[in-house]
Amino acid sequence: MKEKILAAIDKNSKITPSDLAVMLGADEKEVVKTIKELEDERIICGYPTLINWDRVQTEIVTAMIEVKVTPQRGLGFDKIAERIYMYDEVEAVYLMSGGFDLTVFIEGKSMQEVARFVSEKLSPMEAILSTSTHFVLKRYKQHGLHMDYKKEDERMSIIP
């Protein structure tokens, strides 16, 4: 049941519990209860909207920063990751395998703002050895959804 609900709302969190119940052949109360449990267990962590900011006047700059850090004794990477993700400017933080340790996504109003964050907040942290900043130029696809592409129904209207 949990997996079925998660798969159904993964790409569309707007489905109402009553519709979801019908679609999954389940009881509505059961669906509501399960969703509540999933939220409590932090399996469902939120319901954000996927916005293509490129199409809005408001300018938003996103940067992906590769960060190398020194892990701290007994705390590993978690402590330093927390110190980074607590900043509001930070959109996402992932621990990585390979040539660097953390990927940090930063959102700002301008390149200057992002650059300032990196030089004034991120780089000076004691555990951080180096950063490498890459600005995002265009988003094509996010969360499995195409940003620009809207499919028209080109099928013939009546087919036996």
């Binding site: 129904d153 099928r155 013939m156 209207s157 009546i158 087919i159 036996p160």
Partner: peptide
């Protein structure tokens, strides 16, 4: 027998067709 419907639907704006016999 469905030819007639096909002709009408294809002329009609904002018609929704649930007459389609192929996957979306």
């Amino acid at each position: 027998g469905i030819r007639k419907f096909f002709d009408i639907v294809s002329e009609m704006k904002d018609a929704i067709s649930l007459g389609v016999g192929e996957p979306d």
